[in-house]
Design a protein around this nucleic acid. Structure first.
Lengths: 390, 390
DNA sequence: GCACTTTTGTCGAGCAACCGACGAAAGTTG
DNA sequence: CAACTTTCGTCGGTTGCTCGACAAAAGTGC
């Protein structure tokens, strides 16, 4: 029977996760154990490399205490963002700081073997370029543009990823790279990335990606919400009140048929403007086009109708708008805010903030890195490693 | 440094939580420790009362092994369901089995002192009636008809609970009853109750309560989703596509203004029927009224529009319809299913089940009891008690 | 009733982790 | 440079958990 209030090494490590250096005495006080015990744990963590001394504290009249902190260089992690037509691989340290990346214009429709093969090569190349060992990579996080069963690491009937259905992405990569692999939806990892970098205090967070499609990543109670089949957050085919536009999905009035990039482009074309795709809409808006501004504001209002509902259902305290269209100026955001604050419950909007994404292009890969780090530094993994070394 | 794979007493207890009796050898095998160690832990749990011997297993040729199981009678818990015009208090054992209850037609608008005072009296009376000691009550769960900040146990601007805003419900009850108090929204505890009793395997679950108002309790990834202000799941004032009916909230097209009890009653009155409130609608439907059936089916379709969106956002695997209107026959459910399966993404509806509540009136108080039990038998609480006894 | 089987309870050995102490180390102050 | 202060590293003592052993207990089968 374990009656003593014992300490797992990971508990001590958790106190150092924030990166702030601390003395042994400080740690002993907060953990409530003797200094000598802390010293032993710190020793073990130092031998594993996860913690390193970072100089001395200012002396208070006697021998200065040495400071210890998380050692980001101890291991490597990899984050991967797979888009419809691109792949981005990033090597990072345990603090999430990027060390180097590789990108390719690769179509996801080329199938899992081609895409994952390129990723494996890129990881091995990046590791070698930095003079590190492949076995130093302790986890890889990857986001895919479709529904993913997170527990098994397999895509489930992804619409734009032919050949990927039930392909064992996690197993395939783990076998070739020899590290645990965390697979998730790309909007989910964008949400994670944005939340971890820009809104770390917020436990109830939603990221809405507006581009060619529309999707949301929902973090509730501090945890990513994935749903039963991994399709949670699919805003694109929610019906917008007052619209009956036909959608490629067969239904009508879908949000995507009104407020996504192609829909806005089509609306502008009807006004006689030369607009092809999402990129042209953004370009036009940046040039100060009144028509584009108006179209974006209307798209924002339509999005707002759906987000008002999401606010009532999920009650987040922050909504961030990301995706290419978020970079087209203030109009989209203004339209959204206008409707959300009018249509949602006052109690839910009282402390609600709506903002544009700050990390933008990086968010997804940042989230993938975060996913990997959180696995690699989890108590289970850490304690297992401590035990193995003893 | 804790390198040994040690066992906390609560770990062993978790193996017995399901109520199935087991032998010491069986437990030792699944936990991966020596028989004698298991014996020591079982001993401690038996002394605390949480575990008790329940006879012998069939002999396999030698001395029969004695079986141990969770002892539900070891402690008491209380579940409380506070509605707009009623209060229900239930005393239960650690298996969640009801021992006795007390109910009162009390208006929640009478304020916290009156309502909570009655609850305290009822609990003490129930405990005495069963010849038990007040200190045997180890936790109380309570659901309130409005937004609740679960962490602090306070209602936040509840619309139908004048005088309750930021009243310290948890503190008030804890002080008078001497046990931890868990406070939550009433729809949330209904969801918890329904899920724990009827759908224990389901991690992504939604309960929709349809009565005078409309609300949802969302369980996602096995956890209740409460949101930033505790208002998550507020379906009532979501806008229904194609409706512009004025709502008491000031907006128009709200779900409640179309599909809740009063709205259906009003629709039937327009057809010349004598219908007052929600109760009359249910009564009429049960008598086989064609008009009521049609109205309920239409309400179901409107609800379906909103639930289709919820399915896309949350991706549950089960939706249960509860509340008084769920007892009015198949028409409401039929209308809901019709629209949800048409309007939601195929992937999300593929394994989705929509069903009527089975526990009905009990669900809320069952959920409150579940909340209390889960706190009382949590590893933290249990290990603390083990340590205190030593 | 006797031999055999299996579990039970007890007990001592082993061991891992925690603690407090003590001398050495490394600063500051005058 | 000496006195003082504070931390560091080490070490022995203690605690408390785990394990395996062994005899007693409680069944079965002939």
């Amino acid at each position: 029977m374990c009656f003593t209030a014992l300490m797992r090494t990971s508990e001590l490590f958790d106190l150092l996760r924030d990166g702030r250096p601390r003395t042994r005495a400080e740690l002993a006080r907060t953990a409530g154990v003797a200094r000598s015990s802390v010293a032993a744990h710190i020793d073990a963590l130092t031998r594993l490399g996860y913690v390193a001394p970072v100089g001395d504290a200012a002396s208070t009249g006697g021998r200065p205490a040495s400071l210890f902190a998380l050692n980001p260089a101890a291991r490597l992690v990899v984050g991967v963002d797979v888009g419809a037509t691109h792949v981005l691989v990033e090597l990072a340290d345990l603090a999430g700081a990027p060390l180097g990346d590789a990108r390719a214009d690769l179509d996801v429709a080329e199938g899992p073997e081609a895409v994952l093969g390129w990723i494996v090569d890129a990881v091995q190349r990046l590791v070698a370029e930095h003079g590190r060992e492949p076995r130093e990579v302790v986890a890889l996080g990857i986001g895919l543009p479709g529904p993913v069963e997170h527990a098994t690491g397999m895509p489930i009937s992804p619409p734009i990823m032919p050949g990927w259905h039930r392909f064992d992405v996690a197993g395939h990569l783990r076998e070739r790279l020899g590290c645990p692999v965390l697979v998730d939806n790309d909007v989910n990892i964008m949400a994670l990335g944005e939340q971890r970098t820009a809104w770390p205090e917020t436990d109830d967070f939603v990221l809405v990606k507006v581009a060619t499609g529309i999707g949301a990543g929902i973090i509730s109670g501090g945890r990513l919400q994935r749903g039963a089949q991994g399709t949670a957050g699919d805003l694109g085919h929610v019906r917008v009140p007052g619209s009956s536009a036909p959608c490629r999905c067969g239904n009508e009035g879908c949000l995507e048929a009104v407020a996504a990039g192609p829909a806005i482009a089509a609306a502008l074309r009807e006004q006689g403007l030369e607009v092809e795709g999402t990129g042209d809409v953004v370009a036009l808006a940046r040039l100060g086009s009144v028509e584009a501004a108006r179209a974006l504001r209307q798209a924002g209002r339509d999005l707002g109708e759906v987000l008002a509902m999401l606010v009532n259902l999920v009650n987040p305290s922050v909504i961030v708008i990301g995706g290419r269209l978020a970079g087209a100026g203030e109009d989209l955001l203004a339209g959204i805010s206008e409707v959300v604050y009018r249509r949602s419950l006052p109690l839910a909007t009282e402390h609600l903030r709506i903002a544009a994404s700050t990390t933008q292009a990086d968010a997804a890969v940042r989230g993938a890195v975060a996913l990997a780090i959180e696995h690699a530094l989890s108590p289970e993994v850490l304690d297992a490693e401590t035990r193995a070394m003893a």
